[in-house]
Write a protein that binds this DNA or RNA. Structure first.
Length: 243
DNA sequence: GCGACAG
DNA sequence: ATCTTGTCGC
């Protein structure tokens, strides 16, 4: 019954040591493909998750949402949700193991096959270059972009205050060399930047361009906003009961 | 020992 | 992420 659709990790599996999880992330990073995605697809998927205490089990309930946005109108044309109860605790650098399973389940319920997925978190702007967006992209072999509200790793120069301004996120490797893993992007004048990085089958420049196109009015992409709204509503619907 | 630290 | 009211501003 509770089969997990995630080829990455089963949320019900026994606790795995951080070292082993890091190995998995390095393996995923190996599969990430960085290449331009010149055209923004007409339909873009947004995913996000919300959490709440589980009144019955005493643990935590996670609700994941996947929405399909028509970029010609920014309307939601399709949506799906999924929930699970046993997930790992949040640890910086390991978000994907907690969040990806329920997101993949929600995505699997969509009728259409995603052409591009925008995730609420990092892509390769990650200690092992395998953030949430990479996990999702590699698992489905679909282009993904990570658009996070906060920085995890990497440094950047001061970003000018107008929409469209950006600075590359530079990550210093263990060998001392520096690599661009993403960008701090201003999607609204005088408003805090978002942190954009490729998840899979996109590159930094096209990721930035697409996030800007998807966030014409607010700080966050419409995909993220719609998914956030949906998973919160769905979570509320799952409250007061369990199983 | 003291910070930093996606959601 | 989640806990939480009012409040300043367009």
């Amino acid at each position: 019954m509770s089969h997990c659709l995630s080829p990455i990790i089963d949320p019900t599996m026994p606790i795995m040591p951080d070292e082993q999880l890091s190995d998995l992330q390095r393996a995923i990073a190996t599969k990430v493909v960085l290449q331009p995605l010149e055209q923004l697809p007409r339909f873009v998927v947004g995913v996000d998750a919300a959490y709440a205490p589980d009144r019955v089990g005493g643990g935590t309930v996670a609700c994941g949402a996947a929405v399909v946005i028509d970029t010609s109108s920014f309307e939601v044309v399709e949506q799906a949700t999924a929930t699970n109860h046993k997930m790992l605790d949040y640890q910086p650098g390991f978000l994907a193991f907690r969040e990806a399973p329920v997101l993949l389940e929600a995505i699997a319920k969509l009728r259409r096959r995603p052409e591009l997925i925008v995730c609420d978190g990092q892509g390769i702007a990650h200690p092992a270059k395998a953030g949430l967006a990479c996990h999702v992209g590699v698992a489905l072999d679909v282009p993904t972009i990570g658009c996070a509200k906060n920085r995890l790793v990497g440094e950047h120069e001061t970003v000018d205050q107008n929409r469209g301004d950006s600075q590359s996120l530079q990550l210093t490797e263990t060998d001392g060399t520096s690599t661009s893993v993403g960008a701090a992007v201003r999607t609204r004048d005088h408003v805090k930047c978002v942190f954009v990085s490729p998840g899979h089958m996109v590159d930094v420049p096209t990721s930035v361009a697409h996030v800007l196109a998807l966030a014409p009015q607010f700080r966050l992409p419409e995909t993220t906003r719609a998914a956030d709204q949906l998973c919160r509503a769905a979570l509320a619907g799952h409250e007061g009961r369990s199983k």
